[in-house]
């Protein structure tokens, strides 16, 4: 059975997407990405260290020919900054993909969805493939789609919190009725079961950074997440049984010794 994720003509081999932040070095980053099976990796745009030119480049370890590089605009609190970082990322990179973040608050890192909507509209017109990091609001997801988002990336829980999918009902509404574009849960996935839950809800993919990077054994967790995403997707496609309060026997009553 063919079950491909395609966003604006780009085919994604893996439904697990991984971040590259918080690893101790590039070697560990590379090993973890390989264990995860992901073909999409997020990166950030930052100043080159011009005083220490011995410092290596992330792309020496992550081959852009092998992986889809998805730059983010993390750390941007205004529309102007998010546009500037997106344009720099496109120039530094190899594609029009951007994981658009316009952050509204330092403590929660919740998105400023008003700024996000404005930035999405502008960047979509400039030819970017915009994947906005948004909250779990179905109406905002629809607005972002209308503004030209190629997919929407609702949060499961705050970035780095590991709280899992806090509002599965809204995520389901986003998937089932709010938008036609792919839905990628971004942020909050703390362990394998969280990733499986996201996929069982019908998400098209899951993006994880801290849930893997912060684990005691990131390589093992990357592998766990890989399997959880595959299992969750299969369970979604298989169609789970309805929940009910009382039992239904699995074994026949016929032929019992009575």
């Amino acid at each position: 059975m063919e079950d491909k994720l395609i966003i604006r003509g780009i085919e994604f081999k893996s439904r697990l997407w991984v971040g590259t932040g918080k690893y101790k070095d590039f070697e560990e980053t590379k090993t973890v990405i390989e264990a995860s099976g992901a073909d999409v990796v997020t990166v950030s745009v930052r100043r080159v260290n011009i005083t220490d030119r011995k410092s290596e480049n992330l792309l020496d370890y992550i081959d852009p020919k092998k992986y889809k590089i998805l730059p983010n605009t993390a750390g941007c609190y205004t529309v102007e900054d998010a546009l500037r970082y997106s344009r720099l990322a496109r120039e530094a990179g190899v594609s029009d993909l951007v994981k658009l973040e316009v952050i509204g608050d330092e403590k929660t890192l919740f998105p400023d969805t008003i700024g996000l909507l404005k930035a999405t509209e502008i960047l979509a017109k400039e030819g970017f493939i915009v994947l906005p990091y948004t909250n779990d609001d179905p109406i905002m997801a629809k607005r972002l789609e209308d503004a030209g988002a190629a997919a929407v990336m609702p949060l499961g829980a705050p970035i780095g919190s590991g709280l899992g999918i806090r509002n599965p009902y809204n995520i389901r509404i986003i998937i089932e009725t709010a938008v036609k574009v792919p839905v990628v849960v971004d942020a909050g996935v703390g362990t394998a079961s969280d990733a499986a839950v996201a996929m069982e809800l019908g998400c098209d993919a899951v993006l994880i950074n801290t849930g893997i990077a912060g684990a005691k054994d990131p390589v093992a967790m990357a592998s766990a997440m890989k399997h959880a995403v595959i299992a969750g997707r299969l369970a979604y496609l298989a169609g789970r049984i309805p929940k009910k309060l009382y039992a239904t026997a699995s074994s026949p009553l016929e032929g019992m010794l009575l």
Binding site: K22, S44, V45, R46, L59, P71, A74, A92
Partner: peptide
């Protein structure tokens, strides 16, 4: 002048 590149990020 600003010179930027990609670093690890989520």
């Amino acid at each position: 002048v600003e010179i930027v590149n990609f670093v690890g990020g989520g």
